[in-house]
Design a protein around this nucleic acid. Structure first.
Length: 301
DNA sequence: CCGCGGGCCTGAGAGC
DNA sequence: TGCTCTCAGGCCCGCG
């Protein structure tokens, strides 16, 4: 479930207890998540010093002093919870709460910082994999990813160009991690709403006719493409500031809820009045490529 | 190559 | 209460 803002929130929560510390002990409580763990997974991580914690799209990447990188993905229901081992007996209710879903606590990192970091994932669509840093460029999980939506290289011209030859809807294009990496169903709906663009629109309409024929980078972005990039930036930055969105599973690593869900304007708001000033439309829902789309047919064109 | 639909899992909530 | 059905923030894979 986590999209870029949730993953970034998790990264910021883990960084202070992982970066600059050693993985004293690693518990792996099952043989697989989405994929089986590598045979040497534990031995390559146990005792290792973490030099940095980064993010690429919806992936977390922990750099190790050994030259390996630990790649982590939260799937739909993955989460990390941090507690200090030294205040372990303080919150009695904590142990109580943990016993409740302890069944899905699959991986536990015991850090030299004194932190205990538990990865919980009921649906097990998440996964972890250790890769040599110098083989990162050939890693199939990462190699197809498009630009970071908050990175410098992502702009209207680039978005228009990568949409120019697409035969899908704009909604599907934005969910395609090869076009832009990190958006998911919620933030695509929200960005399209804020840009007043229809999810049904053909993706290729973001480029001018000339740009579509040429298919050249730096070609001709339309005002629509500019508006969309602005909306994507805005919604992601606001969501990160709010600690992400907590619908079902996502929490900050401290256990606190994110609160961007209160700022959704269309997602999960079917039947509500459109929030665009003076619009008066009603938020509708329909299915596109097997996913729910929420939008206002009146002001999104 | 591209786009789509199925499948992977569990749990929450609605309706009966 | 409990059963059945639908749906969920993602992404890999096989098919046409």
């Amino acid at each position: 479930m986590p999209e870029l803002p949730e993953v970034e929130t998790v990264r910021r929560g883990l960084q202070p207890v992982m970066e600059g510390f050693r993985i004293v002990k690693l518990e792996v409580r099952r043989k697989d998540l989405r994929f089986p763990f590598q045979r040497d997974f534990v031995e390559r991580l146990a005792g290792q010093f973490v030099t940095g914690l980064g993010r690429r799209a919806k992936y977390l990447l922990a750099d190790l002093a050994s030259g390996d990188v630990l790649l982590m993905h939260l799937g739909m229901s993955g989460s990390f919870r941090v507690t200090k081992e030294d205040d372990e007996r303080a919150p009695g209710q904590f142990h109580h709460a943990r016993a409740k879903d302890g069944a899905h606590d699959h991986v536990v990192f015991h850090m030299s910082s004194g932190a205990e970091i538990v990865f919980n994932d009921p649906r097990r669509f998440g996964y972890m994999k250790v890769i040599a840093r110098n083989a990162l460029d050939e890693e199939p999980l990462l190699s197809g990813l498009g630009p970071e939506p908050l990175g410098n290289e992502f702009d209207a011209a680039m978005l228009a160009q990568s949409c120019a030859n697409k035969k899908t809807s704009l909604k599907a294009a934005l969910l395609d991690q090869r076009v832009v990496a990190g958006l998911g169903n919620i933030y695509v709906c929200e960005a399209l709403f804020r840009a007043h663009l229809s999810p049904r629109r053909l993706a290729a309409t973001l480029a001018t006719k000339a740009g579509q024929r040429k298919g050249v980078a730096g070609g001709e972005p339309t005002d629509h493409a500019k508006r969309l990039v602005t909306a994507i930036h805005a919604v992601l930055n606001q969501a990160i500031k709010a600690g992400g969105s907590s619908l079902r599973d996502h929490r900050q690593t401290s256990g606190e809820l994110g609160y961007f869900q209160h700022s959704f304007q269309v997602y999960d708001r079917e039947g509500e009045k459109c929030q665009t000033a003076g619009c008066g439309g009603i938020v509708k829902r329909f299915t596109q490529n097997g996913r729910s789309t929420f939008w206002c047919p009146k002001c999104q064109k």
